[in-house]
Nucleic acid binder design. Structure first.
Lengths: 203, 203
DNA sequence: TTTATTATTGACATTTTTATCAATAGAGCC
DNA sequence: GGCTCTATTGATAAAAATGTCAATAATAAA
Protein backbone atom coordinates (compact mmCIF):
# COMPACT_ATOMS: atom_id res chain seq x y z
CA UNK A 1 0.00 0.00 0.00
CA UNK A 2 2.20 2.70 1.25
CA UNK A 3 5.78 3.16 2.29
CA UNK A 4 4.64 4.33 5.66
CA UNK A 5 4.02 1.48 8.07
CA UNK A 6 0.65 2.06 9.69
CA UNK A 7 2.13 0.44 12.74
CA UNK A 8 -0.91 -1.53 13.84
CA UNK A 9 -1.85 -0.06 17.19
CA UNK A 10 -2.43 -2.71 19.86
CA UNK A 11 -5.99 -2.85 21.10
CA UNK A 12 -6.90 -1.62 24.52
CA UNK A 13 -9.01 -4.17 26.31
CA UNK A 14 -10.94 -2.84 29.28
CA UNK A 15 -13.16 -4.47 31.84
CA UNK A 16 -16.85 -3.91 31.03
CA UNK A 17 -17.08 -1.42 33.89
CA UNK A 18 -14.02 0.51 32.76
CA UNK A 19 -15.29 0.51 29.19
CA UNK A 20 -18.65 1.93 30.22
CA UNK A 21 -16.96 4.51 32.39
CA UNK A 22 -14.71 5.54 29.53
CA UNK A 23 -17.69 5.95 27.24
CA UNK A 24 -19.80 7.89 29.71
CA UNK A 25 -16.91 10.18 30.57
CA UNK A 26 -16.43 10.91 26.88
CA UNK A 27 -20.14 11.55 26.44
CA UNK A 28 -20.16 13.90 29.41
CA UNK A 29 -17.28 15.91 28.00
CA UNK A 30 -19.19 16.26 24.75
CA UNK A 31 -22.41 17.23 26.48
CA UNK A 32 -20.72 19.90 28.57
CA UNK A 33 -18.74 21.28 25.67
CA UNK A 34 -21.29 21.13 22.90
CA UNK A 35 -24.69 20.17 24.22
CA UNK A 36 -26.89 17.10 23.73
CA UNK A 37 -27.05 17.37 19.97
CA UNK A 38 -23.37 16.39 20.00
CA UNK A 39 -24.16 13.02 21.55
CA UNK A 40 -24.08 11.16 18.24
CA UNK A 41 -22.83 7.61 18.18
CA UNK A 42 -19.84 8.43 16.01
CA UNK A 43 -18.90 11.49 18.07
CA UNK A 44 -19.06 9.67 21.37
CA UNK A 45 -17.05 6.76 20.01
CA UNK A 46 -14.41 9.10 18.59
CA UNK A 47 -14.17 11.05 21.84
CA UNK A 48 -13.80 7.78 23.74
CA UNK A 49 -11.16 6.63 21.29
CA UNK A 50 -12.97 3.44 20.31
CA UNK A 51 -15.04 2.06 17.44
CA UNK A 52 -18.75 2.77 17.06
CA UNK A 53 -19.51 -0.88 17.44
CA UNK A 54 -17.79 -0.96 20.81
CA UNK A 55 -20.15 1.66 22.18
CA UNK A 56 -23.08 -0.41 21.03
CA UNK A 57 -21.58 -3.54 22.51
CA UNK A 58 -21.67 -1.99 25.98
CA UNK A 59 -24.87 0.01 25.77
CA UNK A 60 -26.99 -1.55 23.05
CA UNK A 61 -27.96 1.78 21.54
CA UNK A 62 -26.97 5.42 21.59
CA UNK A 63 -30.19 6.20 23.44
CA UNK A 64 -29.11 4.03 26.32
CA UNK A 65 -25.84 5.89 26.46
CA UNK A 66 -27.76 9.12 26.81
CA UNK A 67 -30.06 7.72 29.46
CA UNK A 68 -27.15 6.35 31.44
CA UNK A 69 -25.31 9.64 31.22
CA UNK A 70 -28.35 11.55 32.37
CA UNK A 71 -28.76 9.28 35.35
CA UNK A 72 -25.11 9.52 36.22
CA UNK A 73 -25.10 13.30 36.12
CA UNK A 74 -28.29 13.59 38.15
CA UNK A 75 -26.83 11.25 40.74
CA UNK A 76 -23.67 13.34 40.93
CA UNK A 77 -25.69 16.52 41.32
CA UNK A 78 -27.79 15.00 44.05
CA UNK A 79 -24.66 13.95 45.89
CA UNK A 80 -23.28 17.47 45.75
CA UNK A 81 -26.57 18.96 46.91
CA UNK A 82 -26.68 16.52 49.78
CA UNK A 83 -23.30 17.78 50.85
CA UNK A 84 -25.02 21.05 51.71
CA UNK A 85 -26.70 19.52 54.71
CA UNK A 86 -23.29 18.42 55.99
CA UNK A 87 -21.86 21.90 56.15
CA UNK A 88 -23.18 23.37 59.34
CA UNK A 89 -26.07 23.92 61.65
CA UNK A 90 -27.12 27.28 60.34
CA UNK A 91 -28.67 27.84 56.92
CA UNK A 92 -26.31 30.76 56.42
CA UNK A 93 -23.81 31.84 53.77
CA UNK A 94 -21.70 28.70 54.02
CA UNK A 95 -24.62 26.47 53.12
CA UNK A 96 -25.80 28.73 50.35
CA UNK A 97 -22.26 28.87 49.05
CA UNK A 98 -22.06 25.11 48.81
CA UNK A 99 -25.46 24.94 47.18
CA UNK A 100 -24.52 27.47 44.55
CA UNK A 101 -21.25 25.66 44.00
CA UNK A 102 -23.20 22.49 43.38
CA UNK A 103 -25.31 24.18 40.72
CA UNK A 104 -22.43 25.95 39.10
CA UNK A 105 -20.35 22.84 38.62
CA UNK A 106 -19.48 22.50 34.95
CA UNK A 107 -22.27 20.91 33.01
CA UNK A 108 -25.10 21.32 35.48
CA UNK A 109 -26.66 24.04 33.38
CA UNK A 110 -26.48 21.80 30.36
CA UNK A 111 -27.92 18.93 32.35
CA UNK A 112 -30.82 21.02 33.55
CA UNK A 113 -31.59 22.31 30.09
CA UNK A 114 -31.30 18.80 28.74
CA UNK A 115 -33.71 17.43 31.32
CA UNK A 116 -36.14 20.25 30.66
CA UNK A 117 -36.09 19.58 26.96
CA UNK A 118 -36.24 15.83 26.95
CA UNK A 119 -39.43 15.91 28.91
CA UNK A 120 -37.64 13.60 31.27
CA UNK A 121 -38.08 16.16 33.98
CA UNK A 122 -39.85 13.32 35.68
CA UNK A 123 -36.39 12.12 36.45
CA UNK A 124 -36.32 14.99 38.90
CA UNK A 125 -38.10 12.67 41.25
CA UNK A 126 -34.66 11.20 41.77
CA UNK A 127 -34.00 14.34 43.75
CA UNK A 128 -36.93 13.92 46.07
CA UNK A 129 -35.19 11.73 48.61
CA UNK A 130 -32.24 14.05 48.79
CA UNK A 131 -34.41 17.10 49.29
CA UNK A 132 -36.30 15.45 52.11
CA UNK A 133 -33.05 14.72 53.90
CA UNK A 134 -31.97 18.34 53.62
CA UNK A 135 -35.31 19.58 54.91
CA UNK A 136 -35.08 17.23 57.84
CA UNK A 137 -31.60 18.46 58.72
CA UNK A 138 -32.63 22.08 58.53
CA UNK A 139 -35.66 21.82 60.76
CA UNK A 140 -33.72 19.56 63.15
CA UNK A 141 -30.87 21.95 63.67
CA UNK A 142 -32.53 25.32 63.44
CA UNK A 143 -35.58 27.11 64.74
CA UNK A 144 -37.31 26.81 61.39
CA UNK A 145 -40.51 24.90 61.01
CA UNK A 146 -40.48 22.23 58.31
CA UNK A 147 -42.59 24.50 56.12
CA UNK A 148 -40.10 27.33 56.51
CA UNK A 149 -37.23 25.00 55.78
CA UNK A 150 -38.99 23.77 52.66
CA UNK A 151 -39.53 27.30 51.46
CA UNK A 152 -35.90 28.15 52.05
CA UNK A 153 -34.83 25.15 50.05
CA UNK A 154 -37.17 25.99 47.21
CA UNK A 155 -35.97 29.57 47.10
CA UNK A 156 -32.37 28.41 47.17
CA UNK A 157 -32.86 25.94 44.38
CA UNK A 158 -34.70 28.40 42.16
CA UNK A 159 -32.02 31.00 42.68
CA UNK A 160 -29.16 28.57 42.28
CA UNK A 161 -30.61 27.12 39.10
CA UNK A 162 -31.26 30.57 37.71
CA UNK A 163 -27.74 31.64 38.48
CA UNK A 164 -26.26 28.40 37.23
CA UNK A 165 -28.13 28.64 33.94
CA UNK A 166 -28.06 32.34 33.21
CA UNK A 167 -25.65 33.90 35.67
CA UNK A 168 -22.72 34.18 33.33
CA UNK A 169 -24.82 35.43 30.42
CA UNK A 170 -26.63 37.95 32.60
CA UNK A 171 -23.46 39.35 34.12
CA UNK A 172 -22.00 39.78 30.68
CA UNK A 173 -25.19 41.26 29.33
CA UNK A 174 -25.29 43.90 32.04
CA UNK A 175 -21.61 44.61 31.89
CA UNK A 176 -20.97 43.40 35.41
CA UNK A 177 -18.11 41.31 36.79
CA UNK A 178 -18.48 37.58 36.34
CA UNK A 179 -19.70 36.59 39.78
CA UNK A 180 -22.09 39.48 40.20
CA UNK A 181 -25.29 37.61 39.50
CA UNK A 182 -24.29 34.98 41.98
CA UNK A 183 -23.43 37.51 44.67
CA UNK A 184 -26.74 39.18 44.12
CA UNK A 185 -28.64 35.94 44.44
CA UNK A 186 -26.84 35.03 47.64
CA UNK A 187 -27.62 38.45 49.05
CA UNK A 188 -31.28 37.83 48.29
CA UNK A 189 -31.12 34.57 50.15
CA UNK A 190 -29.38 36.07 53.17
CA UNK A 191 -31.94 38.86 53.29
CA UNK A 192 -34.70 36.28 53.11
CA UNK A 193 -33.38 34.53 56.19
CA UNK A 194 -32.64 37.79 57.98
CA UNK A 195 -36.18 39.10 57.64
CA UNK A 196 -38.55 36.35 58.68
CA UNK A 197 -40.99 39.08 59.65
CA UNK A 198 -42.30 39.38 56.15
CA UNK A 199 -41.80 35.68 55.73
CA UNK A 200 -45.25 34.90 54.53
CA UNK A 201 -45.62 38.01 52.50
CA UNK A 202 -46.02 36.19 49.25
CA UNK A 203 -49.33 34.41 49.23
CA UNK B 1 -56.03 1.64 -7.99
CA UNK B 2 -58.55 1.21 -5.28
CA UNK B 3 -62.31 1.27 -4.93
CA UNK B 4 -61.98 4.03 -2.42
CA UNK B 5 -61.75 7.41 -4.05
CA UNK B 6 -58.87 9.28 -2.49
CA UNK B 7 -60.85 12.39 -3.20
CA UNK B 8 -58.01 14.60 -4.39
CA UNK B 9 -57.86 17.41 -1.86
CA UNK B 10 -57.56 20.85 -3.46
CA UNK B 11 -54.30 22.55 -2.72
CA UNK B 12 -54.13 25.43 -0.30
CA UNK B 13 -52.14 28.24 -1.79
CA UNK B 14 -50.91 30.81 0.69
CA UNK B 15 -49.03 34.02 0.34
CA UNK B 16 -45.33 33.59 1.12
CA UNK B 17 -45.84 35.43 4.42
CA UNK B 18 -48.82 33.31 5.40
CA UNK B 19 -46.95 30.17 4.44
CA UNK B 20 -43.98 31.09 6.59
CA UNK B 21 -46.27 31.99 9.45
CA UNK B 22 -48.09 28.68 9.16
CA UNK B 23 -44.81 26.79 9.26
CA UNK B 24 -43.36 28.72 12.19
CA UNK B 25 -46.57 28.35 14.17
CA UNK B 26 -46.48 24.61 13.59
CA UNK B 27 -42.82 24.47 14.60
CA UNK B 28 -43.56 26.43 17.77
CA UNK B 29 -46.33 24.05 18.73
CA UNK B 30 -43.93 21.15 18.31
CA UNK B 31 -41.19 22.87 20.27
CA UNK B 32 -43.47 23.67 23.19
CA UNK B 33 -45.06 20.24 23.24
CA UNK B 34 -42.06 18.04 22.58
CA UNK B 35 -38.85 20.05 22.64
CA UNK B 36 -36.33 20.96 19.96
CA UNK B 37 -35.49 17.39 19.01
CA UNK B 38 -39.00 17.24 17.54
CA UNK B 39 -38.18 19.94 15.01
CA UNK B 40 -37.48 17.49 12.19
CA UNK B 41 -38.33 18.48 8.67
CA UNK B 42 -40.95 15.78 8.28
CA UNK B 43 -42.53 16.54 11.65
CA UNK B 44 -42.78 20.25 11.06
CA UNK B 45 -44.23 19.71 7.58
CA UNK B 46 -46.78 17.24 8.92
CA UNK B 47 -47.80 19.57 11.75
CA UNK B 48 -48.18 22.40 9.26
CA UNK B 49 -50.21 20.16 6.97
CA UNK B 50 -47.97 20.59 3.94
CA UNK B 51 -45.29 18.67 2.05
CA UNK B 52 -41.66 18.55 3.16
CA UNK B 53 -40.63 20.27 -0.03
CA UNK B 54 -42.90 23.19 0.74
CA UNK B 55 -41.08 23.87 3.97
CA UNK B 56 -37.80 23.89 2.12
CA UNK B 57 -39.25 26.15 -0.55
CA UNK B 58 -39.92 28.86 2.01
CA UNK B 59 -36.94 28.42 4.31
CA UNK B 60 -34.23 26.70 2.30
CA UNK B 61 -33.35 24.29 5.07
CA UNK B 62 -34.68 22.95 8.32
CA UNK B 63 -31.94 24.83 10.14
CA UNK B 64 -33.27 28.11 8.88
CA UNK B 65 -36.70 27.16 10.17
CA UNK B 66 -35.20 26.64 13.60
CA UNK B 67 -33.26 29.88 13.48
CA UNK B 68 -36.32 31.83 12.39
CA UNK B 69 -38.41 30.26 15.14
CA UNK B 70 -35.79 31.07 17.73
CA UNK B 71 -35.68 34.68 16.62
CA UNK B 72 -39.44 34.94 16.60
CA UNK B 73 -39.79 33.56 20.10
CA UNK B 74 -37.02 35.73 21.47
CA UNK B 75 -38.65 38.78 19.91
CA UNK B 76 -41.99 37.88 21.47
CA UNK B 77 -40.36 37.40 24.86
CA UNK B 78 -38.58 40.72 24.60
CA UNK B 79 -41.84 42.43 23.76
CA UNK B 80 -43.51 40.97 26.81
CA UNK B 81 -40.59 41.94 29.03
CA UNK B 82 -40.71 45.44 27.67
CA UNK B 83 -44.32 45.64 28.72
CA UNK B 84 -43.06 45.55 32.31
CA UNK B 85 -41.79 49.09 32.07
CA UNK B 86 -45.24 50.21 30.98
CA UNK B 87 -46.96 48.99 34.10
CA UNK B 88 -46.29 51.63 36.68
CA UNK B 89 -43.84 53.92 38.37
CA UNK B 90 -42.97 51.63 41.24
CA UNK B 91 -41.01 48.40 40.89
CA UNK B 92 -43.55 46.73 43.12
CA UNK B 93 -45.72 43.61 42.88
CA UNK B 94 -47.49 44.73 39.73
CA UNK B 95 -44.25 44.97 37.78
CA UNK B 96 -42.92 41.74 39.18
CA UNK B 97 -46.21 40.10 38.34
CA UNK B 98 -45.96 41.14 34.72
CA UNK B 99 -42.35 40.04 34.54
CA UNK B 100 -43.15 36.63 35.94
CA UNK B 101 -46.06 36.37 33.57
CA UNK B 102 -43.71 37.07 30.68
CA UNK B 103 -41.39 34.28 31.72
CA UNK B 104 -44.13 31.80 32.44
CA UNK B 105 -45.79 32.15 29.08
CA UNK B 106 -46.03 28.74 27.43
CA UNK B 107 -42.82 27.79 25.75
CA UNK B 108 -40.47 30.25 27.35
CA UNK B 109 -38.90 27.56 29.46
CA UNK B 110 -38.34 25.48 26.36
CA UNK B 111 -36.96 28.47 24.55
CA UNK B 112 -34.52 29.22 27.33
CA UNK B 113 -33.33 25.65 27.53
CA UNK B 114 -33.02 25.58 23.77
CA UNK B 115 -30.95 28.74 23.70
CA UNK B 116 -28.75 27.46 26.49
CA UNK B 117 -28.08 24.26 24.65
CA UNK B 118 -27.55 25.53 21.17
CA UNK B 119 -24.76 27.71 22.39
CA UNK B 120 -26.65 30.47 20.67
CA UNK B 121 -26.98 32.19 23.98
CA UNK B 122 -25.16 34.94 22.15
CA UNK B 123 -28.56 35.64 20.73
CA UNK B 124 -29.34 36.88 24.19
CA UNK B 125 -27.76 40.11 23.07
CA UNK B 126 -31.08 40.68 21.35
CA UNK B 127 -32.37 41.36 24.83
CA UNK B 128 -29.80 44.01 25.64
CA UNK B 129 -31.69 46.92 24.15
CA UNK B 130 -34.86 45.97 25.93
CA UNK B 131 -33.12 45.63 29.26
CA UNK B 132 -31.51 49.03 28.92
CA UNK B 133 -34.90 50.60 28.32
CA UNK B 134 -36.30 48.99 31.44
CA UNK B 135 -33.34 50.13 33.51
CA UNK B 136 -33.76 53.66 32.24
CA UNK B 137 -37.46 53.68 33.14
CA UNK B 138 -36.77 52.39 36.61
CA UNK B 139 -34.11 54.89 37.54
CA UNK B 140 -36.15 57.66 35.92
CA UNK B 141 -39.27 57.03 37.89
CA UNK B 142 -37.94 55.85 41.22
CA UNK B 143 -35.35 56.78 43.79
CA UNK B 144 -33.09 53.98 42.66
CA UNK B 145 -29.70 54.63 41.24
CA UNK B 146 -29.04 53.01 37.88
CA UNK B 147 -26.85 50.43 39.60
CA UNK B 148 -29.65 49.56 42.00
CA UNK B 149 -32.13 49.35 39.16
CA UNK B 150 -29.79 47.04 37.29
CA UNK B 151 -29.43 44.78 40.28
CA UNK B 152 -33.18 44.66 40.72
CA UNK B 153 -33.62 43.67 37.10
CA UNK B 154 -30.97 41.01 37.32
CA UNK B 155 -32.51 39.56 40.44
CA UNK B 156 -35.94 39.62 38.83
CA UNK B 157 -34.75 37.92 35.70
CA UNK B 158 -32.87 35.19 37.55
CA UNK B 159 -35.86 34.51 39.76
CA UNK B 160 -38.35 34.64 36.92
CA UNK B 161 -36.28 32.32 34.77
CA UNK B 162 -35.79 29.93 37.64
CA UNK B 163 -39.49 29.90 38.36
CA UNK B 164 -40.40 29.64 34.70
CA UNK B 165 -38.08 26.71 34.17
CA UNK B 166 -38.45 24.78 37.38
CA UNK B 167 -41.37 26.28 39.25
CA UNK B 168 -43.90 23.70 38.29
CA UNK B 169 -41.53 20.78 38.84
CA UNK B 170 -40.38 22.13 42.18
CA UNK B 171 -43.87 22.74 43.49
CA UNK B 172 -44.83 19.23 42.54
CA UNK B 173 -41.66 17.80 44.00
CA UNK B 174 -42.23 19.45 47.35
CA UNK B 175 -45.92 18.67 47.39
CA UNK B 176 -46.95 22.31 47.30
CA UNK B 177 -49.75 24.01 45.36
CA UNK B 178 -48.90 24.89 41.79
CA UNK B 179 -48.13 28.58 42.16
CA UNK B 180 -46.17 28.23 45.37
CA UNK B 181 -42.71 28.57 43.88
CA UNK B 182 -43.77 31.67 42.07
CA UNK B 183 -45.31 33.23 45.18
CA UNK B 184 -42.15 32.50 47.06
CA UNK B 185 -40.00 34.11 44.42
CA UNK B 186 -42.15 37.22 44.32
CA UNK B 187 -41.97 37.46 48.09
CA UNK B 188 -38.18 37.36 47.83
CA UNK B 189 -38.27 40.20 45.37
CA UNK B 190 -40.61 42.31 47.47
CA UNK B 191 -38.41 41.75 50.50
CA UNK B 192 -35.41 42.77 48.48
CA UNK B 193 -36.99 46.09 47.61
CA UNK B 194 -38.35 46.57 51.13
CA UNK B 195 -34.96 46.22 52.79
CA UNK B 196 -32.50 48.36 50.91
CA UNK B 197 -30.52 48.59 54.14
CA UNK B 198 -28.71 45.37 53.45
CA UNK B 199 -28.75 46.21 49.76
CA UNK B 200 -25.08 45.80 49.15
CA UNK B 201 -24.69 42.81 51.35
CA UNK B 202 -23.59 40.58 48.54
CA UNK B 203 -20.21 41.72 47.35
C1' DT C 1 -60.28 33.10 -21.66
C1' DT C 2 -55.47 32.99 -21.93
C1' DT C 3 -51.13 33.61 -19.90
C1' DA C 4 -47.61 34.26 -16.52
C1' DT C 5 -46.19 33.52 -12.03
C1' DT C 6 -45.03 30.67 -8.37
C1' DA C 7 -46.71 27.99 -4.25
C1' DT C 8 -47.21 23.23 -3.92
C1' DT C 9 -46.21 18.49 -4.40
C1' DG C 10 -44.64 13.41 -5.13
C1' DA C 11 -40.84 10.87 -6.51
C1' DC C 12 -36.27 10.40 -6.16
C1' DA C 13 -31.36 11.28 -4.70
C1' DT C 14 -28.03 12.32 -1.13
C1' DT C 15 -26.29 12.56 3.27
C1' DT C 16 -26.20 11.41 7.97
C1' DT C 17 -26.83 8.39 11.70
C1' DT C 18 -27.56 4.06 13.75
C1' DA C 19 -27.20 -0.81 14.03
C1' DT C 20 -25.58 -5.68 12.57
C1' DC C 21 -22.18 -9.27 12.09
C1' DA C 22 -18.43 -12.11 11.46
C1' DA C 23 -13.59 -11.99 12.30
C1' DT C 24 -9.76 -10.45 15.31
C1' DA C 25 -7.10 -10.24 19.43
C1' DG C 26 -6.23 -9.34 24.49
C1' DA C 27 -6.20 -11.78 29.05
C1' DG C 28 -6.87 -15.37 32.30
C1' DC C 29 -6.67 -20.41 32.93
C1' DC C 30 -5.50 -25.35 31.96
C1' DG D 1 1.92 -23.92 24.40
C1' DG D 2 -3.11 -24.49 23.70
C1' DC D 3 -7.89 -23.06 25.09
C1' DT D 4 -11.86 -20.25 26.36
C1' DC D 5 -14.08 -16.11 26.88
C1' DT D 6 -15.35 -11.81 25.21
C1' DA D 7 -13.98 -6.90 24.32
C1' DT D 8 -12.85 -4.88 20.07
C1' DT D 9 -13.15 -3.77 15.33
C1' DG D 10 -13.87 -2.92 10.06
C1' DA D 11 -17.07 -3.74 6.70
C1' DT D 12 -21.54 -3.52 5.63
C1' DA D 13 -26.43 -3.08 6.03
C1' DA D 14 -30.43 -0.54 7.50
C1' DA D 15 -32.80 3.38 8.85
C1' DA D 16 -33.59 8.16 9.34
C1' DA D 17 -33.28 12.73 7.91
C1' DT D 18 -32.42 16.22 4.57
C1' DG D 19 -32.49 18.07 0.19
C1' DT D 20 -33.37 18.18 -5.29
C1' DC D 21 -36.23 18.52 -9.24
C1' DA D 22 -39.57 18.50 -12.66
C1' DA D 23 -44.49 18.58 -12.93
C1' DT D 24 -48.87 20.41 -11.19
C1' DA D 25 -52.28 23.72 -10.00
C1' DA D 26 -53.93 28.10 -7.61
C1' DT D 27 -54.19 32.94 -8.41
C1' DA D 28 -53.78 37.31 -10.49
C1' DA D 29 -53.09 39.91 -14.54
C1' DA D 30 -53.60 40.63 -19.49
Amino acid sequence: MSIIKTGKVPRVRRSPEAARENILAAAERLLVAQGPQALKLADVAAEAGIANASVLHHFGSIDEVQTALMERMVADLVARILAVSEVGAEPSPAGAQTLFDAFEAPGVARLAAWLEMTGEAKRMTMVRGAVQKVVARLSERTLMTPAEAEDLIMASVVLAMGVGLFGRALSTLMGKPAGHTRDLAMALLVKHVAHPSSWRGGD
